[in-house]
Simulated scan of single mutants.
Amino acid sequence: MLIDSHCHLDFPELSADLDGVLARAAAAGVSGMVTISTRVENFATYTRIAEQHGNIWCSVGTHPHNAHEELHITTDELVRLSAHPRCVAVGEAGLDYFYDNAPRDAQATGLRRHIAAARTTGLPLVIHSRQADDDMAAILEEEAGQGAFPFLLHCFTGGADLARRALALGGYISFSGIVTFRNAREIQEVAAFVPSDRYLVETDAPYLAPIPHRGQSNEPSFVIHTAQKLAEIRGVTLEQVGTETTANFARLFSKTGLA
């Protein structure tokens, strides 16, 4: 059994055939998934999807690409919306210095507001971090000094230093199809040392399809390939990866009631 901890079921590549996507996921042994918010203004769409399916949950947050467009969203508003019974996380929020689609100060402001919401609610913060390891680690450490908050570095693409600093703060790390790529040696090295009680799997669908589907539109059923690669890297069985990542998901995303 696997859970796709991060996908975007509202994106047209998936929403156009949602019944088929969910059927294929079930056939592949994917028992649940979280459809992740990229814009708070679309929260009603995420909750509608989650309300229609007992094994789908959602989050509330602003992707760093859109940070400058939702600076009017306050921490209080995030907290209020997160009370929805199908909302189990805050985010995704973070820092993306690869695309730099939003000013970096806006990204940092948004991230800190989401951290405050996670701290207030106890819901996990889903963090997007790309080519921003030093600033991300510094913000996480500074904010943790003001009060602990649960968090997950999703679709991990950073270095070992960020991973270790995040783990030291109690964070979790999620691996996507990128870990199956031949040039992903540094990520594979991180996947080898993350403790068994602190890692998750995801697709980030419709993006980043794993080998052997690279170049195709990704979907939750493909998370099996990521899990298989993690089993190979960690020297364990696929069944153990499924058991561990599902237990970790249930613990971190405790509002799902799976624990």
Results as ranks from 00 to 15, higher is better:
S254H: 15
N183M: 00
E92A: 08
E41H: 08
S82M: 07
A138K: 14
E202W: 11
A160P: 05
G110N: 15
R130L: 05
V88S: 06
R119P: 02
S129D: 02
G61N: 08
D10T: 13
G170K: 00
V126L: 13
E202S: 09
L81G: 04
Q131D: 15
K229C: 09
G171F: 03
D134Y: 00
Q188Y: 05
Y199H: 05
L111I: 09
D135L: 05
H53T: 08
T226F: 13
L9Y: 11
F151G: 08
T45W: 12
Y46L: 15
G177D: 07
L111D: 01
H84G: 06
F181A: 09
F43K: 01
T243G: 05
T62W: 04
R234I: 09
F175H: 04
I211L: 13
Y199M: 06
P206F: 15
L140A: 08
F181P: 11
R164Y: 04
G122H: 08
Q240P: 01
A148H: 05
F98P: 00
N218I: 03
H63M: 11
Y97E: 05
P212G: 06
D76N: 12
E202C: 11
G54W: 03
Y207R: 11
R39S: 02
I56Y: 06
Q216A: 13
E13N: 08
